[in-house]
Amino acid sequence: MMSNLFLVFNPSSSIFNLSFNWLSTFLGILMIPSMYWLMPSRYYIFWNSILLTLHKEFKVLLGPMGMKGSTFIFISLFSMILFNNFMGLFPYIFTSTSHLVLTLTLAIPLWLCFMLYGWINHTQSMFAHLVPQGTPAILMPFMVCIETISNVIRPGTLAVRLTANMIAGHLLMTLLGNTGSSISTMFLMVLLITQIALLILETAVSLIQSYVFSILMMLYSSEVN
Rank of each mutant, 00 (worst) to 15 (best):
A137D: 12
I215N: 01
G66E: 13
S98W: 01
I167P: 05
S184I: 14
L188H: 14
I149A: 07
L82H: 05
L199A: 07
R161E: 15
L51T: 12
S214Y: 02
R161P: 04
S150H: 08
V160A: 13
L207H: 07
G63W: 10
S19H: 10
M140R: 00
V190S: 11
S3K: 14
M140C: 14
L51F: 09
P33H: 01
I75G: 00
P155M: 02
F9C: 00
S210W: 03
W37H: 04
S12N: 12
M35V: 07
L201W: 14
L130S: 07
T105E: 00
L112Q: 07
T105I: 03
L89S: 02
Y43N: 14
C113I: 12
I45A: 15
I29F: 15
I29C: 14
I215Q: 04
G180I: 15
H122T: 06
I149R: 01
R154C: 02
N121G: 09
I108G: 04
E223C: 05
L175Q: 13
V131L: 07
F26V: 12
G177P: 05
N4I: 07
T103E: 00
W22C: 00
M87G: 01
T163R: 05
L7R: 12
Y44C: 02
I45M: 10
L110R: 02
T185D: 13
G118K: 00
I208E: 11
K59G: 08
I29W: 03
P132H: 03
T53F: 00
T71C: 12
M31E: 05
G156F: 15
I73S: 03
V101W: 07
I108V: 13
V144I: 15
N151K: 01
M115R: 06
T174N: 12
C145G: 03
F90L: 00
L162F: 00
I45C: 08
L106Q: 06
T105Q: 00
I149N: 02
M173V: 08
R42G: 15
I15Y: 13
Q133T: 13
S24A: 06
G134V: 01
L100Q: 10
Y117W: 07
I196D: 10
L30W: 03
S14R: 06
L192T: 14
N151T: 05
S181V: 09
Y92M: 08
H122Q: 06
M80N: 02
T148E: 07
